[in-house]
């Protein structure tokens, strides 16, 4: 999947996407991370051929989403952010209708539907009305619909929005199994930092329609300059000689001293700590306390986007309400 200079302007004024260049290798799990309104959904809707970009190009498996939309649609599956199943029929019936729309031959239909239900752990609820499902079950049913056709690429827009932690985990466990078995590419949007960190092979951070950072979760964290070793020492013995010796280590990039506290910035804190301890001991410095701080994706986000992601708790309540009201309406 590839985009070149993708731009989308709504109503001639609002720039939702501002020159997005992305390259996603097949078979990878790719997360697009950003706050609400950053352009995540717009990008996904262009990639799934729902809307046309104002300028720029996007390709899925080498097919242009603008000119070869019909072919793209045959290869992709998509789970929108909002609830996307019929609530007044059963889970099985939802899958049956989709199987028919996708033209799965009757001989294979039943087998594939039950496999998808089983994959998502919904077999025992197959014949219950979707109205009676919990939020997590509805999400899993939506994933089942998406997996039914064995897509080469799966687009998930905020796949675990409004779900409690155990339901989120369940959704991702099932998705991982599917990916291992079928080698599909998963492209997902999220504003949950931990979700991107845990499940993505690669992350792009998007803010105000621009990709501001791109890489594996590890490389993004490393890009902050490294991990910090904090030492509390007996001040008397810590002289310039010790300082120079520690600075001489390959992985150490900086030392900040403040009273009894010494902060050492290292690319690899766990491996450099024993060496640092050796140097200190040789020079007769006694250490009272040691701690290692590793940067989180939160810090990465803060650095590249210039803002923190909104507090998760506040976001969740409104999402749950949103999801609930959608279900009630059904």
């Amino acid at each position: 999947m590839k985009t070149v200079g993708l731009t989308k302007i709504y109503g001639g004024r609002i720039k939702a996407l501002d020159g997005v260049d992305l390259n996603v290798e097949s078979g990878k799990v790719f997360a697009l991370l950003g706050p609400n309104g950053a352009g995540k959904t717009t990008l996904m809707r262009i990639l799934t051929t729902q809307i046309k970009p104002t300028s720029g190009e996007a390709y899925v498996f080498g097919l242009s989403v603008v000119r070869e939309g019909a072919k793209v649609r045959e290869m992709v599956s998509y789970v929108p952010q909002e609830m996307s199943v019929w609530t007044d029929i059963s889970g099985y019936e939802n899958l049956l209708i989709y199987a028919k729309i996708y033209g799965i031959p009757p001989s294979r239909r039943n087998k594939l539907i039950w496999e998808a239900l089983e994959n998502m752990g919904l077999s025992e609820f197959a014949n219950n009305l979707v109205k009676t499902y919990s939020g997590g079950m509805i999400r899993r049913l939506e994933c089942a619909c998406a997996l039914l056709t064995r897509p080469k690429i799966l687009f998930l827009d905020e796949p675990t929005i409004g779900l409690d932690p155990s339901a989120r985990k369940a959704v991702w466990e099932r998705l991982s199994i599917f990916r291992k078995e079928n080698g599909a590419t998963i492209f997902f949007n999220t504003h949950y930092m931990d979700e991107a960190d845990l499940y993505a092979d690669e992350i792009a951070i998007i803010n105000r329609g621009r990709i501001v950072a791109l890489g594996t979760p590890e490389s993004l964290k490393h890009s902050l300059g490294g991990e910090i070793i904090s030492l509390e020492v007996e001040d008397s013995a810590f002289g310039s000689k010790v300082l120079e010796a520690i600075k001489g280590l390959d992985v150490v990039s900086d030392i900040i001293m403040g009273g009894n506290e010494v902060n050492i910035v290292s690319r690899d804190a766990e491996h450099s700590l024993p060496e640092i301890m050796d140097i200190l001991r040789l020079n007769g410095v006694s250490v009272r306390r040691v701690s290692i701080t590793k940067p989180t994706l939160d810090d990465v986000f803060l650095k590249y986007a210039g803002v923190r992601l909104e507090p998760v708790a506040a976001g969740r309540i409104s999402e749950v309400r949103h999801v609930r009201s959608m279900i009630r309406r059904g």
Binding site: T49, A70, S77, Y78, M83, S84, M326, G330
Partner: peptide, 16 residues
Amino acid sequence: WERESGILKKLLVAPA
């Protein structure tokens, strides 16, 4: 209702 939920989006991404 199907527009407010995501059903229509999903239908429009289906090969129909």
